[in-house]
Design a protein around this nucleic acid. Structure first.
Lengths: 198, 198
DNA sequence: ATAATAAGTAAATGTTTATTTACTTATTAT
DNA sequence: ATAATAAGTAAATAAACATTTACTTATTAT
């Protein structure tokens, strides 16, 4: 049996992310993707059931999986609160600014109903994404270090500004000065920590 | 000369927003829209140059314009900092939770490269969206009430969590309990204020 | 060596796409 | 009343769409 060519599979994924980041999910077509990845359209259908299957696997496995792993690298839920959040912010910012195409698909994960539903399903069936952060927050609520709010609210307070700041970072990439520096990120992280603590 | 039928124009806009919210921007086609709005495809092209023109006008005028007006209603940049932010959060939350289709397009404004570029262009050519908030922040930085950070960073700290909380609000709409209540929103707003103040 | 088989390709499928053509209708200034 | 005209329609256009058919190729267990 002829084995799958993993380079082709990776090319399909990488170039799909490129097209989504540059032209938008609305403008990704299977034929355009096949041509750009130097592959027959049929080859994509050997590896993915259909277009939705490709997009969901791209989003859940390729992007969110890698983003989660990078964010949690060196993080331990037993860290003290400030240290933990700073680690998560630093990991997240470094990863996203170095993986612009991943970031683009993460944004579509919020806006596209189809990707949003896939994310909810995955979170229910396979266990929560970012489970260590869930426990980290719970521990710190129980220890009386941070305020007691629903987890989804805590997560919004902790990480929404970071994603928006990454957006601003990319908006300034082709301009004379970068406004979103590591120092600005660190200051914003401090503000977030201050807001959450009792 | 036969006058434009404004009801048809409004139907086109409203139903376009419906389709985007339910099926996603990727699944909005001119023919589907025409059929759903009970209009000939040609009629859409009388009112809009092409598909991009329709989407940009929907986003900038119909959605962002209304969102800005609703957010700023009863807000005055001379309010004291806490009162001002609370007003903006309350206005924003009420508006978005009552206008789900507008919210859906606002999310695409962050992810879709075409809408994102249109927003940047508009912000440069026609003057900043949310200019009173810009001045409000500046005044409070100069008075030493809040920390001195780039405007884009301040805005991310102030409003990103709100948009994510609205997302959570809608995610919980069809579930047994609503986790994102007015009280949770108020507590999150307090946390944001606390984080920004010196 | 070769039989078996999944991976791969090029080209075609029928459908849907954005947009236009050719025509009709409703309104208003005369 | 009617000429002038933009708004509106139904149907058509060519291109692009997701997916499949019919075929070839590379690999490996025998």
């Amino acid at each position: 049996m002829r084995p799958k060519n993993l380079e082709k599979e990776q090319a399909i994924r990488t170039i799909a992310l490129d097209i989504i980041a540059k032209e938008g999910l609305e403008n990704l077509s299977m034929q355009k993707l096949a041509k750009a990845a130097n592959v027959s359209p049929r080859t994509i259908y050997i590896k993915y059931e259909d277009k939705d299957d490709l997009l969901i696997k791209l989003f859940i496995t390729e992007v969110l999986g890698a983003y989660e792993a990078a964010t949690l690298k060196g993080f331990d839920e037993r860290m003290d609160f400030k240290t933990g959040i700073k680690k998560l912010w630093d990991n997240g910012f470094q990863y996203l600014k170095n993986n612009r195409t991943h970031f683009a698909l993460i944004l579509y994960g919020k806006s596209s109903p189809m990707l949003n539903k896939a994310y909810q399903r995955e979170n229910i069936q396979q266990g929560q994404f970012f489970a260590p952060i869930h426990r980290f927050i719970q521990v710190n609520v129980e220890a009386g270090i941070i305020q007691d709010l629903p987890f989804d609210a805590q997560r919004a307070l902790m990480f929404s500004p970071l994603l928006d700041l990454v957006n601003e970072y990319f908006d300034h990439l082709n301009r004379p000065v970068q406004i979103i520096t590591d120092e600005v990120i660190a200051n914003c992280c401090d503000a977030v920590i201050k807001g959450m603590m009792k």
